[in-house]
Simulated scan of single mutants.
Amino acid sequence: MTPTLFLTFATHVSMTVLLLSAGILTLRLMRGPSAADRLVAVDMLGLVAAACCAGAALLAGHAAFLDVALGVALVSFLGTAAFAGLLERAADQGGAARLPAE
Rank of each mutant, 00 (worst) to 15 (best):
G94V: 12
L47P: 12
T4V: 15
A54K: 02
G95E: 10
T80A: 13
L70K: 13
A60S: 13
L74T: 14
T11E: 14
L59A: 07
V40G: 02
A36H: 08
A101M: 15
A97G: 14
A35Q: 03
M15L: 09
G32R: 08
L45H: 08
G55D: 01
A41P: 08
L58G: 13
S21L: 06
R89W: 10
L47N: 15
L27Y: 10
A36I: 12
F9C: 09
L18Q: 00
E102I: 07
T80W: 14
A64R: 07
T4P: 11
M1H: 13
G32H: 12
V40F: 12
I24H: 12
P33D: 06
L7D: 15
E102C: 11
A41T: 08
T2M: 07
A91Q: 08
G46W: 09
F77R: 01
M1K: 13
A82W: 08
L66H: 04
M44E: 15
M15K: 08
R38E: 03
L39S: 07
A81G: 03
A36G: 11
D43W: 14
M15D: 09
H62M: 05
A35L: 03
L25D: 00
H12D: 14
L29H: 06
A97M: 06
T8V: 10
A41H: 08
V68S: 07
A73M: 01
G61F: 00
D37F: 07
D37T: 06
T8D: 09
R89T: 14
S76T: 07
A73Q: 00
M44P: 11
L66I: 05
A50L: 11
E102G: 12
E88G: 14
A54F: 01
G71N: 12
G32P: 13
A101W: 14
A97P: 11
L18R: 00
R98D: 09
L27N: 14
V48E: 07
D67R: 03
L29K: 01
F83G: 04
G79H: 07
L18W: 02
T26A: 05
T8H: 05
L39T: 05
A57W: 06
R31D: 12
M44D: 12
L19D: 01
G95Q: 15
G61L: 00
L74R: 10
A81D: 01
L29A: 02
E88I: 08
R31S: 13
L39K: 01
P3H: 11
L5V: 11
H62I: 00
A91E: 09
P33M: 14
A50S: 07
G85D: 00
F65W: 01
L7Y: 02
T8L: 12
Q93G: 11
M30E: 15
L7N: 15
M44T: 10
T26I: 05
G55L: 00
V42Y: 09
L70A: 15
R38V: 01
A69S: 05
A63I: 05
C52P: 03
A73N: 05
